[in-house]
Design a protein around this nucleic acid. Sequence first.
DNA 1: CTCAGCTAGATTTTT
DNA 2: TCTAGCTGAG
Length: 726
Amino acid sequence: MNNLLEKLNDMQQKAVTTTDGPLLVLAGAGSGKTRVLTHRIAYLIEKNNVAPWNILAITFTNKAAKEMAERVESLIGEAAQDMWVRTFHSACVKILRRDIDRIGYNRSFNIIDADDQKSLVKECLKELRFEEKEFPPKAIMSEISSAKDKLLTPAEYKAEFYTDFRKGQIARIYELYQKKLEVSNDLDFDDLIMLTVRLFKEAPDVLTYYQNKFRYILVDEYQDTNKAQNELIIMLAKEHRNLCVVGDDDQSIYKFRGADITNILDFEKAFSDACVIRLEQNYRSTQNILDAANNVIKNNSGRKGKRLWTDQGSGQKINVYKAEGDYDEAEFIADKMNQLSRDGYKYSDMAVLYRANASSRSLEDVFMRKALPYRVLSGLRFYDRKEIRDMIAYLRLVKNPHDDLSFRRIINTPSRKIGKVTLDNLSAVATRENTSLLETIKNHLGEFSDNLCQFYNLIAELIEDAEKLSIDNLVESIYEKTRYRAFLETDEKAQERMENVGELISGAASYVETSENPSFEEYMDNLALVSDIDNYDEEIDAAVLMTMHSSKGLEFPVVFICGFDEGLFPSSMSMFNPEEVEEERRLCYVSITRARQLLYITCAYRRMVYGKTSPYNPSRFLDEIPASILDVTDSRKNVTEYTIPQAKASTYTPESSLFGFSSQPSPPKTSGEVFKTGDSVIHKKFGRGIIISASPVGNDVHYEIAFESVGTKNLLGLYAKLTKDE
DNA sequence: CTCAGCTAGATTTTT
DNA sequence: TCTAGCTGAG
C-alpha cells in the first residue's frame, strides 16, 4: 500500500493523503500534477476503501481524461472503470441525457458547434433586420457565450445591461437565438454546462442524487474553469465537501474563452477551511529554464505565489538570437535543429512555439526548402474541416430530420441546383406551417421543384439505411449516395479531403469495433465532443510547430520560442492593457516551462506583417529574464566583416559564418528502403498498400500508395516509415 | 444558380 | 500578403 506513496515527494504525498475536506493544490509547471491526481484516486480506492463509482474526476480535454483513466487503471486495475473520468462537457451530457426532461427539454437533444452557432446567429440577425456590419456574428457569438458562461439567461442579461443600448439589442439576438435552439432541440456547448446547473437548481432530487454519488470530486486545470463550471462543481461538492482542485494560476491563458482566474484565486474564500498545498519542485526543466520562468512571472500581480526549483542542475544558459528578419530567424532555427540532430537529438525532441498561427509561414517555407522534417499542429482541427462537417451534417439530418441547420448546410453541397430563391420559398412555407424544412418538402411533395423532392427521397433512403447499417457503413452510404465522393473526385486538389472522409469512416469503424454497445446517438455525442482524433502521432520523427497556447501540457527536450518581439508577443492586441499583458506573461511562463534541457528565444529587427515590412523591438519579457542566464547572439553584431544586404533577407544566412557549420540540410536520413512501383508495403497507421508511383523529390522519394483500407495517399518516404510487405 | 473578382480584415480556441 | 466571404454579371 505504501508503495503508492513511495515515488512521491513530501508535498505530493500530502496532496495525495489529504483526502477529506476542500483542498487546493497549486501545481507549478512540471511538478508532477498528473501523478498526484492519479495516485490520489488510487489512494482513495485502495487505502480509504472509497468505491470507484463514488469518484468524479473532471478534466478539460478528452485527451487528459483518457490519459488519467489509463494511468489510474495501471495503478489499481479494472476497478477504475467504474469512476467517472470525464470532461466537463461529457459529464454534463451524461447527466442531461438522463434527466433534462425535468426542465422541459427533450432527452434526445443535439449538440451543435461553433459553426452552427454562427449560422444561427446570422439567421437571428436577418430575422431581426440587424446589419452584420454593426453586429458581427463572431462578436455576438462570443457575447452570448460569455453570458452563458456567467449563467445569465437572455432575461437576466437584458436586466443586467438595461442601460446599455447596444447590449439591449444583443439581448434581443440572444433571446431569439435561444428560442431557435429550443425549437430545434439543440444545445450549444455552453448550454451543456448552464442547463446542468439549472437542472440541479430546479430539480433538487437530481442534485441530491449526484451529490451522494460523487463523494469525492477532483478537478484538473482548475484555473481554466469559468463561472458556470465552478458553480457546477461547488454545487456537487456541497454535501460531502471532499473537493480537490488542482491548477496553476500562473498558467491561466484562456480568459478570452471565459476562463475566470478568480475561481482559483478565491477558492479559499469559497471554502474557508480549505487546505492549500504548493507543488514547487519541478521534474522537467533545468534550473536556468526555471529561473527564466520565475523571473518573468514574478512581474504579475495578484498571484498565489510560487517559485519553481529543481535538484537537477542549472543546465545551459537560455540562447537568444536577435535575427535580422523573419526568414533569417527561421533559418537560424532550422540550422540549429539540424545541428542538434547531428548531436543526437531527434527532430521530434524539438518544438517551435509562436504566438499566432500566421507565424508558421516563414518557418514552413524555410523548413520545406531545407527538407527539415516538421509537422504543424494546425489551427484547423479535423472535425472543423469542411468535408467532415458536411458529412456530419448529413448524419445529423438523418438522425434528426428536423435539424434545419444541417439541412441548410448541405442542401446544395454537392450542388443540386437549389439556391437562395428556392430556399427562401421553402423556408417561408416552413415558417408559416411552423415545421422544419425537410418536413415541409414532405408535406408538399410534388408542389416544389423536382430537385427538392429528390433531396427528400435521398434523405428518406438514408434514414432507412441508418436503421439497418452499422455506423461506418452508414457514413459510407452517405458518402456514395449523396454523391459527395463524386463531388470530391472532380476536384484534383481534393485528394486530402477524400483522405479525411476516409479517416472519418475508419474512425466510425473503430468506434463500432471498440464500443461495448455502439449507438448512433453515442457516436454523434462523441463526434460533437471529441475535439480531434489524436493525430499527434509521436512516433513520427519530425519537429513540431504550434502556438504557445496549444503547447500547454506538453514538454520537449528542446524548445524554440520565436517572434519574441513587442507587438507579436505580447500581441499588439493586448500590449496596452495591463491585465491582458499579464495574461500574455502567463503565456510566456507556460512557453518557457515547456523546455526540458535547451531553450532558444528568437526575435527579429524587422518583419513582414500583413505584407508590410516594419521594424520591431525585442519583447519586454526578454528584459525580465536576468542577463546572467542569457547567451545572446545578435545578427547585427559580430558580423562586421559582412555587409548586411538590405533587401533579400531570405538569402542572408549569417549563422553559417557565425557558428561554423553550413546551412546545408543534414545528410539525408535513410528510410531504410526505397520502393518501386508495384511493391506491396505496410504503413504503421494505414496498413497494407501498393505503390502506384514513386518519384524523387530532393533527397526523398514521393510515393503514391493505394491502401486497402483508406484509399490512395501521397506520402514521403522519409516520414512514412514504410516496410516491405513480404 | 454559379463562379470570378474584389474587398476588408487579420490573436490565442481544451468543448 | 493571404483569404474568407460577399456581390454582381452571365
